[in-house]
Amino acid sequence: MPETHADYRLSQLDQLEAESIHIFREVAAEFEKPVLMFSGGKDSIVMLRLAEKAFYPAKIPFPVLQVDTGLDFPEVLATRDSWAERLGLRLIVASVDQAIADGIVVDDGKTSRNRLQIGTLLNALEEGQFTAAFGGGRRDEEKARAKERVYSHRDEFGQWDPKMQRPELWSLYNGRLHEGEHMRIFPISNWTELDIWDYIGREGIEIPSIYYSHQRRVFERDGMLLSENDLNPLRAGETVTERTVRFRTVGDLSQTGCVESDADTIEKIIEEVAVARVTERGATRGDDRFSEAAMEDRKKEGYF
């Protein structure tokens, strides 16, 4: 809990928490139908924690939306369910498989699940008539995100136009929308990866077990260590070995690599993150590595 010092100093983590709580309350007060986009990853769990604090002792006044890629780690789904139960959340699951079956997105066999999520997500937002969708994006993650606003406007096609962003001053957020438009809200914009881990440690909150060091059967592809899985068939020349690994990010298991690590406690993870020399996405996310503008392009289309 925040300590109040004689000189009224608030640590940077407490300042970040206060800013995020302010954003959650602002959105709940000004938007008709907010929803929190929950990936099961550490960032969205921190968002849930902040939302819990923002409205306590009342329940979180909006539902939680998860896009089920069909390639999610079972450990992540277990954590999702445990959080939903504890907080009494209304959970909406939008399935990529269902979206393919319904013809909302087209699986041509070449497009990654990550990209198919976009159409599935936009459809779920439209069906739910949500006007604000919280996302766990952080500005330290990637260059295109560094310029995104806390309130990020999306047109009626769900697109982001980086050149038409609204100026964002002080802590005054402009949530005006036209019919059919919505706002993406990034309450943890100013948090870094290290802040997230420190906060998880400080709060003592539950995250999926795959973030901690464990034994896993893995194979190497494009310089990444991927998990052995029926949904992720081996290609010629790839061999499976058992290694001691952990995940730094959580996405679909065909695209998310793990790193070799002995960090089996929060303290050890924080130490590891503090000295890491490669960004978490660069290290372990195939979907961001294709081009320098990969994230910018997906964001324009309506990615998280």
């Binding site: 809990m1 640590s11 940077q12 420190d198 400080r202 709060e203 003592g204 924080i270």
Partner: peptide, 15 residues
């Protein structure tokens, strides 16, 4: 949080 052990970590006291 109040009934769990919490960790004092790197950024906790940073300003």
């Amino acid at each position: 949080a109040s009934d769990t052990e919490t960790t004092e970590t790197i950024t906790t006291n940073m300003d």
